[in-house]
């Protein structure tokens, strides 16, 4: 009688194939349910954006990046000394002519405002009445 009810050895191994299947399904679920508000924007090298408590997502892709040593618009670098201001204005007007309504200003957090002021003026001159200041949420 005892022999009949003798416990069989329990196999405690995980079935790895089904585990992998489950994780793959979960991965797709996470990816599809992941919502992203705003647009993807590249932060230019050497720019540490200021921290802020603002939660307004970026809605426009075009930007002017004001670094410590150069200005970058659409991967084209300009001098920060002011000698390229005419070219910068021309470039901003070109962006405006493509139907872009807003421009985002990426500027380093340690820059003094007089360096940024000039490019806000140029953006306004080019036809962007409301510049957006890019920040990193705190």
């Amino acid at each position: 009688m005892k022999k009949l009810y003798k416990r069989k050895d329990l196999n405690m191994e995980l079935n790895l194939t089904s585990l992998m299947d489950m994780f793959t399904i979960l991965l797709f679920f996470f990816l599809t349910s992941y919502s992203f508000e705003g647009v993807f924007m590249r932060i230019e090298e050497g720019i540490d954006l200021p921290y802020s408590k603002s939660r307004i997502p970026i809605s426009e892709r075009s930007y002017i990046a004001i670094g410590k040593d150069k200005i970058t618009i659409e991967n084209i670098s300009y001098s920060i000394t002011g000698k390229d201001d005419v070219e910068i204005l021309k470039h901003l007007k070109e962006i405006k002519s493509k139907g872009v309504n807003y421009i985002v200003i990426q500027a380093d957090r340690d820059l003094q405002f007089y360096r940024i002021r000039n490019y806000i003026r140029l953006a306004v001159q080019a036809g962007f009445p409301k510049p957006f200041l890019a920040v990193v949420p705190r």
């Binding site: 992941y34 603002s54 307004i56 970026i58 957006f132 200041l133 890019a134 920040v135 990193v136």
Partner: peptide, 15 residues
């Protein structure tokens, strides 16, 4: 998500 994509937000200033 955490390393490559850094969330950016904006401040709108009016003239």
């Amino acid at each position: 998500e955490t390393s490559l994509l850094q969330q950016l937000t904006t401040h709108e200033i009016t003239l």
